[in-house]
Structures are given as C-alpha cells and as structure tokens.
Simulated assay, not measured.
Amino acid sequence: MTPVTEIPPDASDGVFVVVTRTSTYLIDVAEKTLLRAPGVSEHTEGDWEVSELRRDSQDIPLLSVRSCRIGEPGQFWVSAVDDPAVRTWRITTPVVEIDRIG
C-alpha cells in the first residue's frame, strides 16, 4: 500500500482504499466502481453517525471522482446499478486516510 493525500479528479487508473470518519471505500478508477463498507473505520471518535445507504457493500458504477482529499469530505458521482440513467452524488464524512493498492 502506498499512502497518498488525494485521488486526482483526472485519475484514469488505480485502486484506492479511502478511510473516512465512519466508513471505508474501495475505489477502482479504471474499472469505474465504488464499494462502501459502512462502519469500517478506526477513526470513529466524536459524534459521527454511520448512515445506511443503498447498495452498501456492493460495487456501484463510479462516473467520476470530484474530490477525494484527506481532511475533506469525498465527493463521488455515481449511477444506480439497476438504472444507469439515475445519477447521484455520494458525499462522505471527512477523509482520514487514502492508500493506493493497485
């Protein structure tokens, strides 16, 4: 694993583990997938509540990374698995760690 401070919005390859205050994300930029593991974080101190989101623990189509930088909420543009015409933002709690694993 290689620690990084951000995933560049123009990244075209790479697999990243992104740890936020409440969850862990596996992001494959080349395959364009995002997987969220809610409640899997070593950084849950404070009053952070873990939200349940549709398709948690499943790969969902990643359209783009708008922002993913340590200290800020991650912002990901995704589409619905069952209807690609439906698009939405996934905005995380503050990012505390990013590791490039591939």
Rank of each mutant, 00 (worst) to 15 (best):
M1S: 15
M1A: 15
I7R: 02
I7G: 00
I7A: 03
P8K: 09
P9M: 03
D10L: 05
A11W: 01
D13Y: 06
G14L: 02
G14M: 02
V15M: 11
F16M: 08
V18G: 10
T20Y: 03
T20F: 01
T20H: 03
S23C: 11
S23K: 06
T24L: 09
Y25D: 02
Y25P: 02
L26H: 09
I27E: 05
I27C: 04
I27F: 04
D28S: 11
D28W: 04
V29P: 01
A30V: 00
A30F: 02
A30D: 04
E31V: 02
T33Q: 04
L34A: 01
L34E: 01
L35Q: 04
R36M: 01
R36A: 05
A37Q: 13
A37E: 14
G39E: 08
S41E: 02
T44M: 14
T44R: 14
E45A: 13
E45S: 13
G46F: 01
G46A: 00
G46D: 03
D47W: 10
W48I: 00
W48H: 09
E49F: 07
E49K: 10
V50S: 04
V50R: 03
S51L: 13
R54P: 10
R54C: 08
R55W: 12
Q58G: 03
Q58L: 05
D59C: 11
D59L: 12
I60A: 05
P61C: 07
L62R: 00
L62Q: 04
L63S: 03
S64C: 05
S64F: 05
S64G: 09
V65C: 01
R66S: 15
S67V: 07
C68Q: 01
R69G: 00
R69A: 07
P73G: 11
G74V: 07
Q75V: 15
W77T: 02
W77F: 09
A80D: 15
A80C: 14
A80L: 13
V81S: 08
D82H: 11
P84D: 10
P84A: 07
P84L: 06
P84E: 10
A85Y: 14
A85R: 15
V86I: 13
V86G: 09
R87F: 00
T88I: 05
T88N: 11
W89P: 06
R90P: 01
R90G: 02
T92R: 07
T92V: 08
T92S: 11
T93R: 09
P94T: 02
P94A: 04
P94D: 08
V95P: 01
V95M: 03
E97F: 13
E97K: 15
I98G: 03
I98P: 03
I98K: 06
D99Y: 15
R100Q: 15
G102T: 14
